[in-house]
C-alpha cells in the first residue's frame, strides 16, 4: 500500500513512558504502525492515521504549543480543580492528581466498569458525566462541547504514548461483537460499511482523500475540516452522514460498541490524544 511498516520500538515505548503525558516529546515517525496482537486480528499491520496525513499536519500535532487540542487541555487542567455541583466537589476532590489517578484510563476505555455492583459499559465521556451527575451532583456536560472535549483530552493525554489496550473478552465480549457487527453493517443510501473503506481500501485514494484505517487512537482530535476539536462519535456521525445514513446518537450504545471495536482494531497503537487530522 506504499505505507512504510515501521515497528514500534522498545526505545519509543520507553521514551513515551518516561515523558508521560502533557510534556511529552515530539511524536515519532517510528511508532506509527504496530503488529497486530494475534493472527485473528482483522489487520495485518496496524497503522495510525498520523501516517496518512501530510508533514504539515503531523508537525502541528507534534507541537504542543501550536496543537489546538492543547488549548482545551489547559482549560481542563483548571476545571479539574474547580468545585461544581451541589456536592461541593471538584474532580480533584476524589481523584487528586490526574497524572497518577488517570494513568491507564485513556488507553483502556471504553470498558465495563463496576458501579456499586452494577456492570456498566462506558467510555470516558459517559464516565465523566456519571461522576458529574452522581458524585458531584452537577449538570451533565453535552457531548462535543468544550468542557467535555477538554476533560476527555486531559484524561486520555495522561496515557499519551501508551499502547491502546482495550479488553474484548469477559464482560466486554458482547459489546465487542456488537461493535464488530456494526463495523461490517452496510448503511445509508450509498450502502457502505466502515469496512468497505477502512478495511478493504485503506492506503488508497477516494477522489483526493487518502483512506486511513480509521483508527481512534488520536481522539478527541483537532480536525481541519471542523476548524476545531471533536469527539470520535462526532467523526462516526460525519462518516454516516457522508454515506447518507441516519447517524446513531453520540454516547449511545451503538457508537460505544463501535468505539470498543475500533480500539481493538488499533490495539497497541500509542494514544496520540489530542491528534491533528485533515
Amino acid at each position: 500500500m506504499g505505507i512504510p511498516h515501521l515497528k514500534k520500538t522498545v526505545a519509543a515505548a520507553a521514551l513515551a513512558l518516561a515523558c508521560g503525558g502533557y510534556a511529552a516529546a515530539e511524536l515519532r515517525d517510528d511508532y506509527v504502525a504496530v503488529e497486530p496482537p494475534n493472527e485473528d486480528h482483522p489487520l495485518t499491520e496496524i497503522i495510525s492515521g498520523y501516517e496518512f496525513r501530510t508533514d504539515e499536519t503531523r508537525a502541528l500535532q507534534a507541537d504542543d504549543f501550536e496543537n489546538p487540542g492543547y488549548l482545551l487541555l489547559e482549560e481542563a487542567m483548571e476545571t479539574w480543580e474547580e468545585v461544581d455541583g451541589a456536592a461541593g466537589k471538584s474532580c480533584a476532590s476524589c481523584h487528586d492528581d490526574y497524572e497518577e489517578s488517570m494513568a491507564g484510563v485513556g488507553s483502556t476505555y471504553p470498558k465495563v466498569v463496576d458501579r456499586d455492583g452494577e456492570k456498566v459499559f462506558t467510555n470516558i465521556e459517559n464516565q465523566i458525566n456519571h461522576c458529574r451527575t452522581e458524585h458531584m451532583q452537577a449538570d451533565a456536560w453535552k457531548y462535543d462541547k468544550p468542557d467535555m472535549l477538554g476533560m476527555t483530552i486531559l484524561v486520555r493525554n495522561v496515557d499519551r504514548g501508551e499502547p491502546v489496550n482495550v479488553a474484548i473478552d469477559g464482560d466486554a465480549a458482547p459489546y465487542f461483537e456488537k461493535g464488530e457487527a456494526l463495523y461490517n453493517q452496510r448503511v445509508g443510501q450509498l450502502d457502505m460499511a466502515c469496512s468497505n473503506c477502512h478495511q478493504d481500501y485503506y492506503g488508497m485514494y477516494i477522489r483526493a482523500d487518502h483512506l486511513s484505517q480509521g483508527q481512534s487512537n488520536g481522539f478527541p482530535t483537532y480536525r481541519f475540516k471542523w476548524s476545531g476539536v471533536g469527539s470520535l462519535h462526532r467523526r462516526f456521525s460525519g462518516c454516516m452522514k457522508n454515506i447518507r445514513a441516519e447517524p446513531f446518537s453520540k454516547g449511545g450504545e451503538e457508537f460505544l460498541a463501535l468505539e470498543l471495536y475500533l480500539g481493538y482494531r488499533g490495539q497497541g497503537l500509542p494514544v496520540e490524544t489530542p491528534s491533528v487530522r485533515n
Binding site: 452496510r186 448503511v187 445509508g188 443510501q189 450502502d191 468497505n196 478493504d200 481500501y201 445514513a245 441516519e246
Partner: peptide, 23 residues
Amino acid sequence: TIMPAFYRETGLNRVPDAFKGTI
C-alpha cells in the same frame, strides 16, 4: 463490492427520509 447500487431503493439500512429513493 463497495460500489453503490445507483438504481435500487430497497434492501438499504438507516436511510434518512431526504435520501429515500434511488441515487
